[in-house]
Amino acid sequence: MSSYYGRPVIKEPVWTWQIPTYFFTGGLAGASSVLSLGAKLAGNERLSKSALYVGAAADAVSPMLLIADLGRPERFHHMLRVAKATSPMNVGAWILLVSGGASSTAAALELLGRLKPVKLLAETVAALAGPPLATYTGVLVADTAIPVWHEGRHELPWIFGASAAASAGAAACMFVPPAEAGPARRLAVGAVAAEGALMQGMELRLGTTGEVYRRGAAGKLALAAKALAGGGAALLATRGGKSRRSAALGGAMVCAGELCLRWSVFRAGFQSARDPKYTIGPQRARVERAGRSAG
């Protein structure tokens, strides 16, 4: 395959550490809001409260991370200058605004113990905004020219969603006594399992494009993600219901694993962009399949 002195055809992202971290916190926030409302509906106030706080905290950190990554942080509010359906980031900004606003309101009212109906409304809004908040980042990365991201567009929202759910469940396990953390544990364990299957499936489907998940930093992070999340989930499943300490450790491991997963996806994008073969190869194959000439 020819290329121009082996130089990349597309650009690597310019995003730094804040972005994969935000993928994690955003997911955590989104899924926690849902978990919180679910617990409330199920009558598990303890879990609901903890998840609410976790979600609100994650919601609060998220914009800070995003703003810190901006080339012009003082212009963060330009994100709301337009309402742009074609931009997952713009859509996400609006979602984050809604989710963050709702969850922080809910958390504040919870803390103050006032205005119950408003709190409930806020919790409901946060829970509605939660699922898209947890999954839109998958679309955000998929909606680029980075082959491993774009080609993974079917799975990425699912993977990010599962990862979010896993981290929300795991985080709750860390703060809620085992007795009341059952749903969170099940969520974490189930989500880790789902996410593992999804990742495997995506890698397989992507073929050559997917090989970046086995190479370099992305590969190492993927491995770490599997080990930590898998180990954590196993710990939660086996001892999480009995030991507070194991639940905390297992929860922390799953959270760390999910963070690694986001980092792995993030790094995979860079690797995929850097080597022109990932860009040119599939396109060339497409051209040849279609029997047309390039251009």
Binding site: L80, R81, V82, A83, K84, A85, T86
Partner: peptide, 20 residues
């Protein structure tokens, strides 16, 4: 003059043209 409103007003619902 907020572009979000201009999007509706100026016939640029997706905000990719003159409204922006």
């Amino acid at each position: 003059s907020w572009p979000v409103l201009r999007q509706l007003r100026e016939g640029d619902p997706l905000g990719r043209g003159r409204a922006a």
